[in-house]
């Protein structure tokens, strides 16, 4: 009786060790690879935009397809901080010493995409603007699914996050 109980437990343990553990390990590696690919894609995209001074539909869709190639769905958040070098006028409220320095106003993913996917297929930027992109996975990866099952983690959690930003270096229009 106790022997068969031990056997059942042993089979369970063995099943977990022989299947779940390697699976988790491989899924983790898979995520690492995806993370690497996503970081590279984001950083590449940001650098391209910075040096070209514009976000084009071509670049954006190339970036999207690089992300898609990892097999996950991603949330892409873009932000352009548009530099206002307008002197003093609109930014005097900040502080006495900031008169004359630059302030920024932001445009976000929806506004940017409206332009990028619109008639002009381009969102032009100018020298001095700041462009940043964050990509995080939307669908859960295999590693997340397994971990959730084992560790009973509530909520999805985010596994793959990549962020890059920088100052735009040329005026694209």
């Amino acid at each position: 009786m106790s022997d068969s109980l031990i056997t059942i437990v042993a089979i369970l343990v063995a099943a977990i060790l022989m299947f779940a553990f390697p699976l988790m390990s491989i899924a983790d590696r898979n995520d690492d690879i995806a993370q690497t690919a996503v970081s590279a894609a984001v950083s590449d995209f940001v650098n391209t935009v910075r040096s070209e001074g514009k976000i084009t539909e071509d670049n954006y869709s190339a970036f999207r397809s690089k992300l898609d190639a990892t097999g996950n769905a991603y949330d892409i958040e873009m932000e352009v901080k548009v530099k206002s070098s307008t002197i003093g006028k609109k930014n005097a409220w900040l502080s006495a010493s900031s008169v004359g320095s630059s302030v920024y106003y932001s445009e976000y993913t929806a506004q940017i995409l409206e332009r990028v996917e619109g008639d002009t297929h381009t969102y032009p930027l100018k020298e001095g603007d700041i462009f940043s992109v964050t990509a995080r996975n939307q669908s859960s990866t295999l590693a997340q699914v397994i971990k959730n099952a084992f560790y009973s983690v509530t909520g999805q959690g985010t596994q793959i996050v990549a962020q890059a930003s920088g100052v735009v270096q040329s005026t694209g229009k």
Binding site: G100, L125, K126
Partner: peptide
């Protein structure tokens, strides 16, 4: 403060936002 010789500001529409 920062002092300027020019009086004018950038156009909010063209030069600032492109």
């Amino acid at each position: 403060v920062l002092l300027y010789d020019h009086m004018n500001v950038d156009c909010y529409w063209c030069m600032m936002s492109a």
